[in-house]
Nucleic acid binder design. Structure first.
Lengths: 314, 314
DNA sequence: ATGAAAGCGCTAACAG
DNA sequence: CTGTTAGCGCTTTCAT
């Protein structure tokens, strides 16, 4: 008799209490699969990320998981291993098994995303990516990167290198645009240095050498991982940070404040964004879908954290 | 007609092909929940870790996920947020929804683990922890830590500090025992320095100062995170690594080889262990449980990676 | 307010 | 080899 357990069960108080007590005593837990069969709700959420080894994405998962648990959802996680085919596969596999999806996908094109029936059919929130037709939660990376360059400008730097992320990455384009915005004012010269993979072995050493050869006195990195790679190479080359070269990262990992030197970086509210994504998803799930309404896009603020890897030019 | 889709369906070839073609055309995908209701199998696995922000655990998840996908399983992940109550809760919530569990739990006591009916009822593999009554996959940390101390001894160090992890942690006890093993030979003196939380802000600075005051010429850290924290503090104090102080970590993160200086560390096959855990789980799932048989415990080798954070005493 | 019954989508067992 | 049926554990609806 499920009525007794339901919050709105039309049962007498005595009956309800009797049933509840018995359920408690027997350790009864309703079978979610069976329930899902009839309600059409699984009680599961899915989160898909490109690479769990990247602390940025790990924190996305953690945040999603944490809030989802609070709302009574279990969460499937899928690591796409930076492989587009695997990611598409993950979406198709996960979609039928969940009530909603949090998708962290910097690389799939907007068209690919919109062409996926599985996504269209299942409430989806894009995390750290804005795309027409999708609900999303993003951080204002453009403003953050502009702040970073402005900070360097204020320290007297006039020639600044930018080591960018993969061209195919949405967030990389966003970050680059933020850097470019400052350049367009004509106050600083930006040297764009290739695109580097945001992994610890993403070919940063070569980029570091290019930065050194460019004559720039400061460098803004795609993210903190890249920033660490640059610093490591600079140090190996005998170039001192920040005395001879200022470095600014982006993302702000837990590690970043503890490194030597502690990294100046654009702080992204990763945990908060993840929670916001779940909240948004949960709201969508609880609201009858309105046809034609443009989904909600939430943009969170970033802020520059000035630490020890930047200094005034000598 | 599910027979046509089943690998062993007793159907004529023509019928099977017709049905398969139709299924393909219609994009039919069996409802896993409904199937699970009758087969008793969900096709889901669960992995529970203490903290996804710790790259060690993130890699555990990634490895589990990766292998599970290969075997056709989806995986629930649960971050226990270093909270025992939450972890217990996660186990109870997840267990009924999965076919098997990979549990990464350094902190729960063996008794707690064995007293959980949910775990006893559901095939479980302990990852990075050995415990009577449970199948497990672990790395030989004891040998690894002994190697680390032996390496320092070979470099001429005679007084070596050890900054340990939380007392309640199984793996911390294992690591400490490995360090102690070398001390018992009488060739080196080990200074045990408190227990530090394996997080980036786990109170390492205090420990670093104690190390400095102890007069030790080298230090072995609970893991790479702690090692980085120590190096950071040493650097801030003007103590050069490795010239004035050698540092050895444990775990070997992707980051560790890229830091300045690159870290000498005990390398743990994290991805491999995670995969092995899923393989073991999968085997258990495919084998009728034998009553009374002691579950399989697999121990993987570690090896010391000598990089730039250790040097001979002057 | 309660009991009984139908049926979610699927597989297993049983006839034909 | 193929069609039919029962029923997994639950919620919902319809009678009572």
């Amino acid at each position: 008799m499920s009525r007794a357990l339901a919050p709105e069960g039309t049962v007498s108080v005595v009956t309800r209490e009797r049933v509840r007590a018995a359920a408690e005593r027997l350790g009864y837990q309703p079978n979610r699969a069976a329930r899902g069969l009839i309600t059409g709700r699984t009680g599961h959420l899915g989160v898909i990320v490109p690479d769990l080894l990247n602390p940025f994405f790990a924190e996305c998962c953690k945040g999603v998981q944490s809030r989802a648990r609070g709302l009574g959802y279990s969460v499937f996680v899928s690591d796409a291993e930076r492989d587009e085919a695997l990611e598409l596969d993950a979406i198709r596999t996960l979609a039928p098994q969940v009530d909603g999806i949090v998708l962290v996908s910097p690389h799939l094109s907007g068209e690919e995303l919109r062409s996926l029936d599985e996504l269209a059919a299942k409430p989806t929130v894009l995390l750290h990516r804005r795309e027409p037709g999708f609900a999303s939660v993003t951080a204002d990376l453009m403003a953050g990167m502009t702040d970073a360059v402005a900070h360097l400008h204020a320290l007297g730097h006039r020639k600044i290198a930018y080591v960018g992320g993969p061209r195919s990455s949405w967030t990389a384009r966003e970050r680059a645009a933020g850097v470019e915005a400052m350049a367009e004012s004509g106050q600083v010269e930006i040297v764009h240095v290739g695109s580097v993979a945001p992994q610890f072995d993403g070919g940063v050493t070569g980029a570091a050498d290019v930065v050194l050869a460019s004559g720039a006195s400061a460098v803004v990195a795609f993210n903190d991982i890249v920033a660490f790679g640059l610093i490591s190479r600079f140090t190996a080359r005998g170039v001192r940070v920040p005395d001879e070269m200022s470095v600014v990262g982006c993302d702000d990992f837990a590690l970043s404040g503890m490194a030597a030197p502690p990294l100046t970086t654009v702080s992204v509210p990763k945990a908060y964004a993840a929670r916001a994504a779940v909240d948004l998803l949960s709201r969508i799930l609880g609201t009858p879908a309105v046809e034609g309404a443009e989904p909600m896009q939430r943009v969170l603020e970033t802020h520059l954290v000035v630490r020890g890897s930047t200094a005034a030019v000598e």
